[in-house]
Amino acid sequence: MNRMMGFSEQSAKQERQYEQVFSKHVSNDSIAEYSRHLASRPSRVGTYGNEVALHYSLEELQKAGLDAYIESYDVYMSVPKHISVKQTEPEERDLDVIEDVAPGTPFSDEIVPGYNAYSPSGTVEGELVYANYGRPEDFEELERKGISVKGKIVITRYGKTYRGIKPKQAAKHGAIGMLIYSDPIDDGYVQGKVYPDGPWRPEDSIQRGSIVQLAEYPGDPLTPGEPSKEGVQRLDPDEAESLPTIPTTPLSYGQARHLLNALEGEKAPESWQGGLPFHYNLGPGDTKVRLSLDIDYERRGVNNVIAQIPGSTYPEQKVVVGAHRDAWVYGAEDNISGWVTAMEMARVLGELYQKGWQPERSIIIAGWDGE
C-alpha cells in the first residue's frame, strides 16, 4: 500500500478506515433529493426563491447534527427591470431576451430575462462590429484591419476569457455598447446533441453572468477589501473601479444569428468563424442595433449558510469546503450540483461526528450566496 503523505503508518491506516466508512454512507438518493428540491425553483440572489432555498439548506445541515447558521451581508447589486435588444437596420426585429419556457414549468414567472449583472443601465444605438471573443488581441486585430469600434456596438462570443474582460476592452476602444452570445461551435450543436436530447446548449439558451471587473477586486464593488456589512464605509458608485462602463447584455445564438448573418464588411478571419451556417463578417455596415437596458441598483441581502465541525487538536486551523448555492435561474448544473455535493459531505461527516469521530482541524462547509 502506498504511503499516505502527511500521515504516519498508524494514522494512515485509521484515515483509510474513516474514508471507507465515509464512502459507504454517501447516498445518490440523498444527493438527488437535495437537487430536486433546490433546482425546482429559481434561486437568484435577493429573491424569495433564494430565501426558500437558504432555509431548506440550513434545516438539512442542522438535521445532520451540525452547528449551522446564516451569515448575512448587505450588498450593492443590479436588479434588471426591462431588457430589450432590437435590430433597427437593415430591417426591424425585436430579439428574444429570455428562453422559450415550456408551458407548465413551475415558477416560470420568476425566470429573469438574460442579463449581465452590473451592466450600466441605458439605451444605446449604433452600427454593429463583430470582435470574435472580445480579447485584447481581437481588438488589436480589428485595428490592424482599419476597423474602428468607436461609437459602435460590439458583438462577441462567450469564451476564451472572463466575460467582464470583453466590455472593458470594448469601452477602452470607444464602443458604446456590447452584446455577448454563446456560439454553437463552443458549446452548442457543433459539440453534440443539445438539451433536452443531450448536454449541449440549445439555440434559445442564454448565459447570464456578472461582468464586474474581478481583476480590480472581488466582492461588493462599493466595499473593496472589506466585508459588506453595516458600518463599513462605501464608495460612491462613480468611484468604484470594478464597475463596467458600457451597457452590455447577453443573447442566445438563435437570436444572435439574425445580427451576424446581416453583417457586412470584410470576411472575418478563419479562426473567428463560428458554428452558425454562414460566413461571419466583421462589419460595420447597414446593420444597426438598439440596446435598451432598464437596470436598477440597490442594496440587497446576501446570505451564506455555514456549518462547522470543531477540530479536536487545532480548532483554530480551518479546512473550508464551499460552493455558491444561488443560481441565475433554476441552476441544476450551476451551481446546485456543487452545493448539493457539499451538503452531502456535510450530512455524512455529521453522522460520523455524532458517532464520536472528530477531525483534528475544524471543518467548515459553506454555501455562498450572490455568486
Rank of each mutant, 00 (worst) to 15 (best):
Q14H: 09
Y253Q: 09
A327C: 14
V79I: 13
H82F: 04
M4L: 15
V190Q: 11
K63R: 11
D369R: 07
D96P: 03
R201W: 07
A171L: 00
H173K: 06
L352K: 06
L282T: 02
R234G: 05
G164N: 09
H324Y: 10
P310M: 01
S78D: 11
G265I: 00
P359V: 06
Y76I: 00
E141N: 05
E110V: 02
S121P: 00
P80M: 02
T161H: 07
Q62L: 03
G254T: 01
L222T: 03
V85Y: 02
M1R: 14
I295K: 03
T47I: 13
Y280E: 14
G338Y: 02
Q10R: 12
E344A: 02
I365M: 06
P310K: 01
N28T: 06
E127P: 08
G254K: 00
G122W: 03
K13Q: 13
V45D: 11
T161A: 15
G322Q: 09
E9R: 14
L282D: 04
G275C: 05
K288H: 14
L142R: 08
E216V: 15
A240V: 01
Q62P: 00
E266C: 10
L128S: 12
S292C: 09
I70W: 01
E316W: 09
N261C: 09
T223H: 02
R44Q: 13
A12R: 09
D67I: 00
I365P: 00
G188N: 03
G209A: 11
G301P: 04
K229W: 11
G219Y: 05
E351P: 01
F7M: 13
D100R: 13
N116Q: 07
Y76W: 15
Q20R: 06
